[in-house]
Structure formats: C-alpha cells, structure tokens
Design a protein around this nucleic acid. Structure first.
Lengths: 135, 135
DNA sequence: AGTGCTAGTCTCTTTTTGAGACCAACAATC
DNA sequence: GATTGTTGGTCTCAAAAAGAGACTAGCACT
C-alpha cells in the first residue's frame, strides 16, 4: 500500500510555500476568506436564493448581528455576493449571489456534499481519538 | 409562507438551520474544522506526501509551532491524517494522509484549483470595493 | 563541554469573536 | 398621540482564540 503522492497536485506549481510571499499564494488568499466560520453557511443560503439581512439572521440563529454584517461585507468585498438597498418604508437590503459566487459554489458544494456523506466517519474517528486520549 | 429555512440544494435532507441542533448539521461540524486558517494548507502538503513536524514547519514558515501542533492534532482527531512516531535518535514524527483524508481532498482540491484560477477576479473585486469604500 | 537537532509545551500579548445595548425612521396598534 | 415593533445596522465591553517566543529533555556530533 503506497499512500504516497497519490493525489495529483493542482496544475503545475500549486503554491510554493517555502518561498512564500504575502499576497502571492492564491490558495491562502482566497481560502482565508471562505474558510471563515460563517462564510460557507451564508454562501450556502444565498446559493439557493437571495435573502435579506433579517432573513439570514433568522436562518442562522446563532450568528451575531455583528458577525453577520462583517461576513456579508467580506463576501461582498471579494465579489461573491451583491448587496442591493430597497427604499421601502423601513429600508430593506437584499443580498444575492453573483456569477463569481456561483462559480465558486460549484466546487464548494462538492465539499459540502462530502461533509454530509462522511459525517459519520468523521464523528467515528473523533470518538476513537477522544477515547484513546482519555487513557 | 414557510419561513423555515431549508438551506441547500444538496442531495436529500439538506440542513434545516432553523431547527438547528449543535452536533446535527454535518456541514457546520465538518467545515468548522477544515475551514481553519491553516488546515487546508497542511492538507494540501500532506496530500502530496507524508511530512515530519519540522518539515511542515519549514514548509509553512509563518505558522507558529503552537498552531501547527494544534492543527495537526485536530486533523488527526477528525481522521484526516495519521501520526506515527519513529524511535530514532532524536525521535521523529511523521504525519500522513489517511484514506478519509484523501477522499475529502478530492473535492477540496477542486476548490483550491478554483482559487488559483480565479484569484485575479477576486483581487479585482476587492480593489473595486475598497475604491468605492474610500469615497 | 558546548552546540544543535528533535517535537513539542508554557506563558504572555495581541487579535478576533460573541453578547448585548443602542440608533433613527417609519407603521400599525392602543 | 404615546407605545410598540420592524428595518439594518453600529458601538462597547467581555471572552475566546491566535501569535511570539522562551523553555524542555534526550541524544549526536565536535
């Protein structure tokens, strides 16, 4: 059983981490954003359909307004979602996924699907680990 | 008007966030781990070949020993990587990806590839946003 | 005897996150 | 016509997490 080097690395030079330069590694730069605690949840919601601020807040009950605001602004900054203000009685704000957001969500949803399908394996590994730690 | 949040388009029962139960949403449970700042980087390295602690440290120069230790232990706990101690003169520890780890890395690598291919679009969106913020 | 390597841990400081109060404008209710 | 609720946030303060760097123990080499 040779476990070594089975996964083809990404095209060409993936990310030479040894000669690392701050803004030079796409993986870090992009991932550090979507790797946030709330980002995937919000992207997952907005991939379905546009939502308003309050709706998202109710959708993810345990996010604080502060973090929702910040997560949305960060996702907007990177171009994954758009923000539109409607001048209704109490002004409402709608967030919706952009083309770029959808193109990211396509591969990302595969990871989310993996998470669902393999959740039990992960939980099992976790239990086993914790058990052996206890000793 | 069913306000109850049905989130995603993933196969089967998605993840009803409105009736959220701590350990019940696979997406959150799994993602919160691999979404760490360093997790993807380490997984990416170990997908290539096994590495020792010090090698990983040199590979990712700006990670602290503390965070490397913790990240490795968390990834090991969830079953993505294995840890083997060799009783050499100064004892060495080798980390290598497990089957579960490889199965996760397959979809995950698609996201990493996306990051490489679309990094310029993200940077462009970011510049545009910052510019309009400045006003 | 001194230096360096190994894989960590321990402590301290800085950054990030979370909880919750507060805001102004308007709508419907009492 | 004063009270309450709803909108999408911001502000402050406490708690949690992350980063920096010193310290460890055993052995090898010089």
């Amino acid at each position: 059983m040779d476990n070594r080097a089975r996964v083809p690395m990404l095209s060409g030079e993936p990310c030479d981490m040894s000669t690392w330069d701050a803004g030079n590694c796409p993986v870090r730069d992009v991932m550090n954003q979507i790797a946030g605690k709330w980002s995937t949840l919000i992207l997952q919601a907005l991939a379905e359909k546009p939502y308003r601020f309050g709706e998202l807040r109710r959708l993810v009950p345990d996010i604080s307004q502060r973090m929702l605001t910040q997560t949305l602004r960060d996702l907007q900054r990177d171009g994954y979602i758009g923000r539109e203000v409607f001048p209704t009685k109490p002004p409402s704000v709608e967030y919706r996924m952009t083309e770029l957001g959808y193109s990211l969500f396509e591969p990302l949803s595969k990871v989310l699907a993996w998470a669902e399908n393999n959740h039990s394996s992960v939980k099992a590994a976790r239990s086993k680990f914790d058990e052996s730690e206890l000793a």
